[in-house]
Design a protein around this nucleic acid. Structure first.
Lengths: 227, 227
DNA sequence: GCAGTGCCTTGATTTAGGTCAAGAATGCAA
DNA sequence: TTGCATTCTTGACCTAAATCAAGGCACTGC
């Protein structure tokens, strides 16, 4: 029962969607289902890696916890996304910790199975390479944001990035924040206070409307050219 | 002659050092030698990728050039290091530009040859994965630095990182800055002025000594615990 | 020699964003 | 409902680092 479940989950993940049933079966042997609830921890900084993780549903937060209480969110991982590959390939300990933000189902794929599959299937290998490349691309983008853009620009970037693409050419674009404002602020490398103030300002300028976690973009053009 | 040269260069690069002569020969078919001089440009942001680069000797600077003159150095690439793999695997245009800082020899490996070799050799594949993972690790470290550390701490981190490891337990550790202070400042995400002031302060505190591009660490313990 | 041109340093001033502190709003549990 | 705990907002204030503005120093080529 559970086995079959893992099979179908794996088969539907972007990373594995070109694999045949036998390949999926091989991977499933090294997969563990993790049923997690809010505030569980998957690992913290310094732990050793024995594989990588894939989020089936729910949400996981990857963050540094600096010695002095402060914490910096590096990434929020959602359904279909994976994390921990790089650390696995490097054989170094995790540089950050993974906290579960909402009840989640996460798969853990063991290092051994992954290595074996890499040796066997160049297509899988290319997908892993592409996955890491995308991750790298995202981080480079972050570095750019942190150093070249103001905090307001980062917030706007975040909003535009999360605009539901399937919102037809209609004028009012709607966004649902997928985590607490606290956490999103940290992701954007600003304090909650600053985040709040920026949303307030954008509201005052009639560029967006805010109602709790629901944000409406009122004037996407002006929003893009906000300085 | 030139062929043989490329062969031996390739064979001695970390990325390829477990390959047999035939494999090297296959790669060499897709390799181009680029003899570059100071202020040449390899590509700028927006260009399409047709492969990736390996620095044999010299130095290349990877940086964003924001619309308004300002530029942010993301990475300085030196001998034996490569760059541009991630962009190649993603098929997206370059997000940043590559400028040559010193007379250099750079190899360009074509996408086709790399893809072919990935399909053929899982070890090569694993090495590429490890390479990208390391890159990712470095960027994550940068993000941590930018958001959790003060500019002084970043400078100190840079100095400690570049301490010549082979300096025996002797007390005076010596460092040679490998680029202009301007560029290193940008790499550390601070202005040249701030960089100069921080070096000055560390000097005043007798933690380091500065003489042009030569920096001596006088008290490495105190330096570690500065801030 | 002595202009000219990049670097680098130093000082004065400004500012974006952080910190601290006090509420308001929301949610949840009993 | 009430009580308690988050999370969010708002205001007053502070500070790290950027910006602006001179100069200084070490090269180059004439």
């Amino acid at each position: 029962m559970v086995q079959i479940n893992v099979h179908s989950i794996l088969a539907n993940l972007p990373l594995f969607n070109e694999m045949c049933p036998e390949e999926i079966a091989r991977l499933a042997l090294g997969a563990r289902e993790l049923h997690l609830s809010r505030s569980d921890k998957l690992f913290h900084g310094g732990d050793a890696s024995h594989g990588f993780y894939i989020v089936v549903y729910g949400q996981v937060k990857l963050a540094f916890n600096s010695t002095k209480g402060t914490e910096k969110v590096v990434k929020l991982v959602g359904p279909g996304q994976s994390f921990g590959e790089a650390v696995m390939f490097l054989g170094k300990p995790y540089p950050l910790s993974a906290h579960v933000l909402a009840d989640s189902l996460v798969l853990h794929l063991s290092k051994a199975v992954v290595y074996e599959e890499i040796a066997r299937d160049p297509i899988f290998c290319r997908k892993m390479l592409a996955g890491l490349s995308m991750r790298l691309h995202g981080l480079v983008h972050d570095v750019e944001s942190y150093s070249l853009h103001s905090s307001a620009q980062r917030v706007i970037g975040y909003l535009l990035q999360h605009e539901t693409t399937d919102a037809a050419a209609g004028k009012a674009v709607h966004i649902q924040l997928t985590a607490s404002k606290n956490i999103i602020a940290s992701r954007l490398n600003i304090t909650p206070e600053t985040f709040s103030r920026i949303l307030h300002d954008l509201c005052a300028a009639k560029l967006i409307g805010v109602e709790g976690k629901d944000i409406t973009i009122l004037d996407i053009e002006k929003l893009r050219n906000y300085g």
